[in-house]
Amino acid sequence: MVLTVLFFASLRERLGCNKLSLTLPAGASVADVITTLAEREPGWCEAFEQGQCLAAVNQQMVKPDYLLADGDELALFPPVTGG
């Protein structure tokens, strides 16, 4: 299956990338995508090592065990804080 992965905020800045296309086997989860991305390039491992990445699939917040489908859009971003 092919996904579009979008990166936002400080995650986008750390990776130097705002969007990519990723091919994974059917039945992959959000956690599988994060693992795959962390192994993609040396600097990317550091961006995902904290395990504190929020995810939305097709603009709906999801948990790491959410199963993805072909053509999904996965947005990844750091937790948001403010005051």
Rank of each mutant, 00 (worst) to 15 (best):
D32G: 05
N58K: 08
G51S: 09
C45R: 15
L76V: 08
L20H: 00
V2R: 15
G43L: 02
L3G: 06
A38Y: 02
L68P: 06
G27F: 05
E46H: 07
P78M: 11
P42Q: 11
V33M: 07
T23Q: 14
G27T: 09
S29W: 06
L11W: 01
A38H: 05
T35M: 06
A38K: 13
V33W: 07
G82T: 04
N58L: 12
A31N: 08
L68Q: 10
C45D: 10
L11E: 02
R12T: 00
A9T: 02
K19I: 08
V30W: 09
L15G: 07
A55Y: 03
E39M: 06
K63F: 02
L3Q: 07
R40E: 10
D65R: 13
C53N: 04
L22E: 04
L3K: 11
S21N: 11
D65G: 08
D32H: 12
N18G: 15
C53W: 06
W44A: 12
K19T: 12
L37S: 03
V57N: 03
P64C: 01
Q50T: 14
L15R: 13
V57T: 06
R40M: 13
Y66H: 15
C53P: 00
F77Q: 06
P25E: 13
V2I: 13
E49A: 14
E13K: 13
N58E: 05
A56W: 11
M1W: 06
P78T: 06
K63E: 12
A9C: 09
K19L: 09
V80Q: 03
S10L: 12
V80A: 08
F7R: 15
C53A: 03
K19N: 04
G71Q: 10
P78D: 09
T35N: 09
T23M: 04
L20D: 02
A9E: 07
M61L: 15
T35S: 12
D32L: 05
F8E: 06
D70P: 00
N58V: 10
K63Q: 12
V57S: 01
E41I: 02
E39W: 01
N58R: 10
F48A: 06
Q50H: 14
T4I: 11
A31H: 07
E13D: 14
T36L: 10
R12I: 00
P25R: 14
A69L: 03
E46M: 02
R12W: 00
G27N: 10
G83H: 01
S21E: 13
E46P: 00
E49I: 05
R40F: 08
D65V: 13
F8T: 07
C45H: 15
M61Y: 11
G51K: 12
R40L: 13
Q50A: 14
F7T: 14
V62F: 04
P79N: 05
E39A: 15
L3S: 09
E13G: 07
F77S: 04
D65L: 09
A38I: 08
P25Y: 04
L3E: 05
G43D: 06
F77Y: 09
N18D: 14
V30N: 13
P25G: 08
E49H: 09
G27P: 10
A31E: 14
G82W: 01
F7N: 13
P64F: 04
